[in-house]
């Protein structure tokens, strides 16, 4: 007993603070959500357990189907833009632009919105979609003598997908371009000697080499898209009505606008479960165990 204590003393001292932090900030929120989901806590902040009442309410919520659909559309299309566009940018700045300074400038430009505060970035989109004739899109329309359109009212989903898709692409771009850069030059030479077309080089050399980064970016972006809502909040605030409301934003609205903390937590719990299921599916689908097992550099 004494020797075991001696053996574990130092690791405990060294790891203790971090384990505590992880528990406090990573694990506890999930536990809290799970517990809160079964209460009907409101602005009075009283813990009153209500069993499955919140889930019952969710099933009867007239907006929920619309919101689920929005979430699926939003996450699906934004993810598609994030990953595909990120991949295209990655290839563009590594394979097609071989001059490093040029591609660096190019990549930096795409990184700029990431560096600027979301409010400023969204302000630009608001200007872009402005319903008056001074908005960018509308002033373009004015050139062809067309009436201004209230873009954010008529196409709110398109607006939030575009805004999120374009800012998110830079993440994939960085990951993919470093993966593509690590492909040995000789492989490209060999492929061009073997007569490979541009398409074949992308399909047979680049994509197999970026398979793991591709999976990583897909999962990572999925998880951050499904739980984040700040750009939607700033751009349309889920409106008009519930036209661009997604689950994460709905949970926020319920909890912090209507002070239905219990109901908001129940929605969040659904989100956590969806995220877990999706991660597990991707794990299986991409054969991620294989990556974890082999540390071979291909």
């Amino acid at each position: 007993m004494g020797s075991a204590l001696k053996k574990w003393k130092l690791p405990m001292i060294m790891l203790g603070p971090f384990v505590a932090l992880i528990f406090l900030f990573f694990f506890l929120p999930v536990v809290l959500i799970v517990i809160l989901a079964f209460t009907n806590m409101d602005s009075a902040m009283r813990w009153e357990f209500a069993g499955l009442a919140n889930f019952q309410k969710m099933l009867e919520d007239p907006n929920l189907f619309k919101i689920m659909k929005n979430t699926a559309l939003y996450v699906g299309f934004t993810l598609l833009i994030n990953v595909c566009f990120g991949f295209v940018l990655g290839i563009l700045t590594t394979y097609y632009i071989q001059k490093e300074p040029v591609s660096l400038v190019f990549r930096t430009i795409w990184m700029l919105p990431r560096m600027s505060p979301p409010v400023v970035y969204v302000l630009l989109w608001l200007w872009f979609f402005d319903p008056s004739e001074y908005g960018v899109l509308n002033s373009l329309r004015a050139l062809f003598h067309m009436e201004p359109v209230a873009w954010l009212h008529e196409h709110p989903m398109t607006a939030i997908i575009l805004a999120n898709g374009i800012i998110g692409a830079s993440f994939g771009m960085i990951i993919f371009s470093s993966a593509i850069k690590s492909i040995p030059k000789d492989l490209f030479y060999a492929a061009s000697v073997d007569g490979a077309s541009q398409w074949s080089i992308i399909k047979d050399i680049i994509i197999p080499a970026v398979r793991w980064p591709l999976m990583f970016v897909t999962i990572w972006q999925f998880l951050s898209l499904i739980t984040s809502y700040e750009y939607i909040f700033l751009l349309t605030n889920g409106g008009p009505l519930f036209e661009s409301e997604v689950l994460a934003l709905y949970s926020f609205h319920k909890a912090f606008q209507n002070f239905e903390f219990g109901y908001g937590s129940a929605i969040s719990l659904v989100l956590v479960i969806i995220a877990l299921i999706f991660s597990f599916m991707m794990w299986k689908w991409f054969g991620m165990q294989k990556m974890m097992r082999s540390s071979k550099i291909e």
């Binding site: 000789d186 492989l187 030479y189 060999a190 000697v193 197999p208 291909e298």
Partner: peptide, 20 residues
């Protein structure tokens, strides 16, 4: 272009396609 020259080449690193 290399593909039109009808050449075969062996590289020092062999440059085999790793996933094939």
């Amino acid at each position: 272009e290399p593909k039109d020259r009808n050449i075969g080449m062996v590289f020092q690193s062999y440059a085999l396609y790793p996933h094939m």
